[in-house]
Design a protein around this nucleic acid. Structure first.
Ligand code: MN
Ligand code: MN
Ligand code: MN
Ligand code: MN
Lengths: 226, 226
DNA sequence: TAGCTAGTTTAGGTAAGCCTTAAAACAGCG
DNA sequence: CGCTGTTTTAAGGCTTACCTAAACTAGCTA
């Protein structure tokens, strides 16, 4: 193994590819660029460098995937990120919507020994405050089997599991409306003409736009009693 | 106020100037360069840049001091550093000699709100695990009135207050010999020909070289009972 | 099937922070 | 006053991570 730690920039690329490729498996460079707030040209360039280092595979004009090595490093960063989120939220009392950004800084400045010690301090938590699973120290990540609310249908009921991907604007909105993992949810109506999804969360009615519904995941339990 | 946060490089320069200028008030560029592990030419270059930004004053051929603005930023970094040290050492159980280096990474990735929350979590500690004072949120630092052991004379007694400046090799050595703030100390002998200083620390005899004795501070209490 | 367009890639360029080597300027000392 | 070692300037380069402008696909649409 040549490198063992990378700089912030590389880590953010790997993390972002991992997030964007979570669904279809191929992260378009434009999405990468947009997500990282840089130009597509710069992203292409960086992807080449990462490719030379064996961290990503690039299919020209199609997109980027992580290699095994790349994925391992990405998961290490994600682990540190989510562990810090737990600490900041549970022990420092910082706001649910803020800890994501604070952790995004700390994740690049955390030695593995520190991450392990934080994990022990927290009691080896399984998920971050936003419900996303925390990889173990070997970079193994339990893929949750929930579904975005956008795929639920009227009548479906269950409980919210996570918000993904996380972004301040979305988290802030959800915090304001008291929407978070653990809350019960019932889909009451799907407005026509691609309109919003009407739901009840924790007993209160909400209208969720497409964007939002696609980023909130839940576990359907239609057979459960109300 | 133009900037509010700086990058790691700038922060390390400011912090290092603050440390080196702690005594005489003027940090020679050569010392800066050596401490940061870069060439003197590069350090000069960077000092110019920092000067243009109003963070340091440079007296050619003499050395560098912090401006008021520069000092404030330096103390903010030092505050974050020492707060993290407390947390890592007291709550995560990481070794006294290791936390300095871990904190040196975290100090550049910590928002002020996080630092304040850490301080509150820790109960507003006054000193780091190595005995050095923690600046308050306004960057005010209580200068301790202790003296390096190198200035003590045979017969002097008191208690260790701090290790300064901190470096892994020194801290590791001290940890190995159970020498740390709070321990009682008695100077028993000063070996001739500039030899080592013989002391008793926590009841055990030690021979301290010049380097080391100059970096360990204590408060003399010759009038105290043994 | 040719043409368009959105997305992608290449070409060429910038700034920060580093580097080395060499020459010039200075401080402190004898 | 002149020597000597330290400090600074000068010159030329390197790497990383960005940029804009221009050329180029891929894949659809007419
Ligand atoms: Mn980050
Ligand atoms: Mn999270
Ligand atoms: Mn540092
Ligand atoms: Mn310390």
């Amino acid at each position: 193994m040549k490198h063992d730690s990378f700089n912030e920039s590389v880590e953010m690329y790997l993390k972002t590819v991992s997030e964007l490729a979570a669904g279809d498996g191929l992260a378009p460079i434009s999405a990468l660029a947009q997500h990282l707030g840089i130009s597509a040209v710069s992203a292409t360039e960086m992807v080449h460098r990462l490719g030379e280092q064996g961290l990503v595979d690039h299919v020209p004009y199609k997109g980027v995937t992580l290699t095994l090595t790349g994925a391992q490093h990405a998961y290490r960063v994600i682990r540190r990120h989510r562990l810090w989120e737990c600490f900041l939220s549970e022990h420092l009392g910082l706001g649910w919507q803020h800890v994501h950004d604070y952790a995004c800084q700390l994740e690049h400045a955390t030695a593995d020994e520190v991450a392990d010690a934080v994990a022990a301090f927290l009691g080896q938590p399984a998920v971050c405050p936003h419900g996303n699973p925390i990889p173990d120290r070997n970079g193994r990540l339990a893929e949750p089997d929930d579904e975005p609310l956008s795929e639920w249908r009227p009548g479906d009921r269950g409980s919210l599991s996570r918000v993904f991907p996380e972004s301040f604007l979305l988290l802030d909105y959800l915090a304001m409306h008291n929407i978070r993992p653990g809350r019960t949810v019932i889909v009451t109506e799907l407005a026509p003409f691609n309109g919003p999804m009407m739901v009840q969360i924790g007993g209160l009615p909400h209208a969720l736009g497409h964007e939002i519904a696609a980023h909130i995941y839940g576990i359907r339990q239609n057979d459960q009693p109300i």
